[in-house]
Design a protein around this nucleic acid. Structure first.
Lengths: 181, 181
DNA sequence: GTCTATAGCGAGATAGAC
DNA sequence: GTCTATCTCGCTATAGAC
């Protein structure tokens, strides 16, 4: 029982965009790997950018939810720690992690894409919630690295002979250490 | 007394490639900003890729020098710390930092470019020198973030009302903390 | 060293048959 | 829902005059 075509396009596009870059990946390549012609793609997505938008949608709602939550909480060290943990929980969804990597690797190419632009904005606001403007610069740099370290820690560990659980815990450990004063 | 045309092409290309992305920046745009036609660019660089190669050259030699140095040293905590400090010293050259940012933002687009490929390779080897294979994963993740944190810490602080010296010290502080056990 | 003109290509996108 | 055929566009790169 195979997935529907729309999902397979997203899956293949995400893979190729991440490996080769967004601009370097043509619709012809995606179609070829899917086993159809590129004209068929246009039945499922109006444009190439629409494919990206559908990928971004996998993340945006999650992060906006976190942002809403954190803003309803008191700005305490405990809230910050909890935010890192909740973000890490979202990241246990492999699709989320893959989309994050795609965005990270194609930052500039995606510069004018509204959905991606919104995503960056939300991530910046989330990072802001981890920081007090009055803190020393070193503290702010350290805290601003926390969420990215969750991503990067997992990316770099993916081919280790370790369980997802172990990788997850290690990434969280480093991220939380970056949050300490 | 203005710079020669070749340097100005590099300068403009570096700026546009970083802001808009490599593929999204056409030679026409570069030429326009320079005030010539794109045909003129081909007198100074054989291809678009050659411009990138000339940019990469600004970094590769520096990093290879560091790699040679660190491999001539005993693998001690002191050597590692000194490597971070020496890398930070290279980063005080604004051009180096800009080229690092260009590469970071255009990773996938530059995937098949030999010079950029070599650069990534050397950076990975440099990061390897900061790690013992036997260390726990959390320690290895932490140490692997150190050099990148020097870049990112500076990028994110560039519009703060602080001196380069203060930014530099803060970034080093965070990077060294990531090196501690 | 810079210009005009253009070759040559592959991209995204569309029309209309099946 | 997928196909063939085609349009249009902008890009890299080159030829050759000045």
């Amino acid at each position: 029982m195979r997935e529907d075509t729309r999902s397979r396009i997203q899956e293949i596009a995400l893979k190729l965009f991440t490996e080769q870059g967004y601009e370097a990946t043509s619709l012809r390549e995606i179609a070829e790997e899917l086993g159809v012609t590129k004209a068929a793609l246009y039945y499922h997505f109006k444009t190439k950018e629409d494919i990206v938008a559908s990928l971004a949608d996998m993340r945006v709602a999650d992060v906006e939810e976190l942002l809403t939550w954190v803003r309803s909480q008191p700005k305490t060290p405990e809230t910050r720690k909890e935010l890192v943990l909740r973000y890490a929980a979202k990241l246990t969804n492999p699709r989320y992690l893959e989309v994050a990597r795609f965005m990270e690797r194609n930052q500039t190419a995606m510069r004018d894409h509204p959905k991606i632009h919104r995503m960056r904005e939300v991530m910046l606001e989330l990072t802001d919630e981890l920081n007090d403007p009055g803190d020393p610069l070193a503290v702010r740099i350290s805290r601003s690295m926390a969420l990215f370290t969750l991503h990067a820690g997992k990316w770099m560990s993916q081919d280790e002979k370790l369980t997802d659980e172990e990788i997850n815990e290690a990434a969280i450990e480093v991220a939380l250490r970056l949050m300490e004063p």
